[in-house]
Design a protein around this nucleic acid. Structure first.
Lengths: 240, 240
DNA sequence: CGGCTCCTTGACTTTCCTCAACATCAGTGG
DNA sequence: CCACTGATGTTGAGGAAAGTCAAGGAGCCG
């Protein structure tokens, strides 16, 4: 199987064969997780860097009222918590949404690799910056977009990210997220996301059924949701 | 005047006199900004690191519809864009909310300092992690808290951050933000934030008038808004 | 076939937005 | 000192968006 982590980082920096091999080596022994398993919980002491090689996960927090907010999706190729080891405790939890293959890289091994291969360090920093930028984009969505715009925006984001990592084609992707999960990411009720998705389907913009998303009218979705992919930083600055 | 930037970083790592002086030196020539001036705009090529020494600023994005979402507040001591120079363009803008003193540190000078003083590098990383954690906390607020809870949560956050940097005491702080600005940060209309603030005032939890916030009942606010200061990471992990 | 999860629908309620008017305040220049 | 101005804060009324509650349907698996 292609190593999605390597594939993603190659999109951020030109990596030599040796660098790719080094990355592949430290992620060569992933552990299998089942759906709905926590990788780490809020309050835990941060451990190794997690790398999702296959499957989906998400960062989330549960409020005292019991409601849940998802703050980020992790798809194949995504890593998390590059530097979070500096902090005493996790401020959120991470859970699988599907069964998943997850590699872990110890803090020490990560430091060694980044010291030995500056280009890898650079790619990891960029990945971190893009993640942060994505958080800001979500804030904009949650604060100022209608529920339908928000949903369309998220689907476009996930699709572009999936294409970038090579787990989707231009027309569509596998999207194994329940409506309840989407609702918790979009800050709405399960009932409402259901109605919103029906609208989007009826407008012939998307088809989403049984874990498969088809983007039928990307232009309309982009226009409607005010999607500007700048925040995903597909074009990068040249290293000086 | 005390250098708030140094004060803040000292909260993240034990800095020697020499390190403090180095930081003070590179921020010794701030430039004065008037209210509502952009420091940098979405689409611009990222430049130096900005350091707010006095006054308030915020990160924001404007949607095609013209509505604005604020994604972060920058108060005295806060810096921005440690590594963003790696990216080709800014994905958001930064604007002053008040008149402000802002120092700039060139990318090169920043790299030199971080190479020469690992503790400074560490403190800057931690600051970045806390900023990122704050973004996630805002996502939770916008997604899953009622407007009143959200407002209370934000006021508590700003107060704690202000106390940490030494620009506030336990009871209150200067908060020179208009209701319109608060509305754009909280994802609500100006009319609604006005009503929410009235509620909070009537419940004797806060007093907020003419740029001065008093926290009258922190316990009630904390409970009501589900505020858990963990995300601000006041307790840090020991360096190994 | 039962049992589970996930999706769908309808009815009703709450929250929040929009529009519009008016009040208050600080600063400016006559 | 006062009139004017622009920004900011306040109030009311009506409507749109989204939540809650409750019930039922569809697909999947042992």
């Amino acid at each position: 199987m292609v190593n999605r982590f390597v594939a993603k980082l190659r999109g951020f920096a030109e990596l030599s064969d040796e660098e790719c091999k080094a990355l592949a080596r430290v992620t060569s022994e992933p552990r299998a997780y089942r759906p709905r398993q926590d990788l780490i919980r809020e309050g835990d002491q941060p451990g190794p860097v997690f790398v999702i090689l296959d499957g989906w996960a998400f960062r989330y927090k549960v409020l005292p009222s019991g409601s849940r907010q998802i703050m980020a999706f992790l798809m194949p190729g995504d890593a998390c918590d590059l530097h979070i080891g500096m902090l005493a405790t996790m401020d959120h939890s991470i859970q699988t949404a599907t069964s998943a293959q997850v590699a872990t890289i110890s803090r020490q091994a990560m430091d060694e690799i980044m010291d030995a291969y500056p280009k890898i360090a650079r790619a990891m920093y960029i990945a971190q910056l893009v993640d942060e930028s994505t958080l800001r984009a979500w804030i904009v969505s949650l604060g100022r977009r209608s529920s339908a715009e928000r949903a369309a925006h998220l689907l476009l984001e996930l699709h572009i990210r999936a294409v970038r990592t090579g787990v989707a084609d231009q027309d569509g992707m596998e999207l194994p997220l329940s409506q309840a999960v989407l609702a918790d990411a979009l800050g709405m009720s399960p009932v409402h996301i259901n109605r919103v998705l029906q609208e989007l389907r009826q407008s012939q913009a998307i088809a989403l059924r049984r874990g498969v998303l088809r983007i039928q009218n990307a232009a309309a979705l982009t226009q409607f949701s005010g999607f500007d992919e700048g925040y995903l930083h597909r074009r990068l600055r040249k290293p000086e």
